[in-house]
Structure formats: C-alpha cells, structure tokens
C-alpha cells in the first residue's frame, strides 16, 4: 500500500529529527553561545506591565496596527474631518444666504437699478 505524501514527508522528517541528536559538540557549543549572545541583546520597548503592544511611540503604535483596522480608522478620521468642515461652511453660508433672501425678496425692481445700492452692498 502506498503512503500518502504527508505520511511520507512525516517519516522523512522524523528521521531528520532523530539526526539532530548527532550534531557535533562544537556546532552545539557555537549554537549555545550564539543563543546566549542573542539573549544579551534582548530588548523590549515597553517597560511597564500595563504597556500596550508596540506602544513605545506613536509611530510604533501605528506600525503595529494591521491594515484591516487601519483603514476603518482612517475612514473615520476623514468622515469626522469632513463633518467639521461642513459645519464650518454652514456657519459662514447661513448669514450670507439670509442676507441674500432679504435683499432679493422685498426690494422693488427700482432699488436694484439704483447705483447707490451696489455701493451699499459692496460695503
């Protein structure tokens, strides 16, 4: 009966795994010292136990955010900015619109033809 590919690979890897026990002592010693040297350089950005992942700095925080969360955040910021801008525009435009209505509705046509009115409007 033929073995499946996974079974076959599993057996091969099992042999390789056993072969790891026969590594020569010099290589093992070198690996051990390399590990010790690496651990000496071990540094964590966060010192506090309440630290958040990657919260070492604002940049680090942004780097940690995955795109699936970053896009909605960017979208939210843009939406809020647009709303604030629209509200400000409304504040500016409202009095102008009211003035325009007042001027346009009740004025007789002769008043619009009066040169003095233009001068007054420009003030």
């Amino acid at each position: 009966m033929s073995m499946s590919e996974h079974e076959l690979a599993g057996r091969i890897v099992q042999r390789l795994e056993r072969g790891l026990d026969d590594l020569d002592p010099r290589s093992l010693a070198r690996l051990h010292s390399a590990r010790a040297a690496a651990l000496d350089h071990f540094q964590i950005e966060t010192a506090s136990p309440l630290a958040w992942t990657g919260a070492g700095s604002a940049v680090a925080l942004l780097r940690r955010l995955s795109p699936q969360y970053l896009l909605p955040i960017v979208g939210m910021v843009l939406t809020v900015s647009a709303m604030v801008y629209w509200q400000q525009q409304q504040r500016i435009e409202d009095p102008v619109e009211i003035d325009a209505k007042l001027l346009a509705s009740d004025l007789p046509i002769d008043a619009l033809l009066d040169k003095g009115l233009d001068t007054w409007l420009q003030r």
């Binding site: 790891l20 590990r35 071990f42 136990p49 630290a51 958040w52 992942t53």
Partner: peptide, 30 residues
C-alpha cells in the same frame, strides 16, 4: 483598544525567546 488590534502586552519574554531559540536552533542550523 482591542477593537483596533491593540492587545495588552503579550510580548515575548526573555524566557520565551530563550526557549524558542533553544527549540529551533539546531533545525535552523541544519
């Protein structure tokens, strides 16, 4: 914070890193 993918500290500790390296170093060498 978790809504934004920010998890409370689950960083690798020195011990975890040491254990990890001890586990993989021979395979990595091979």
């Amino acid at each position: 914070w978790e809504w934004f993918g920010i998890r409370q500290a689950q960083l690798a500790t020195r011990k975890e890193l040491s254990d990890f390296l001890a586990e993989v170093e021979r395979r990595a060498y091979k």
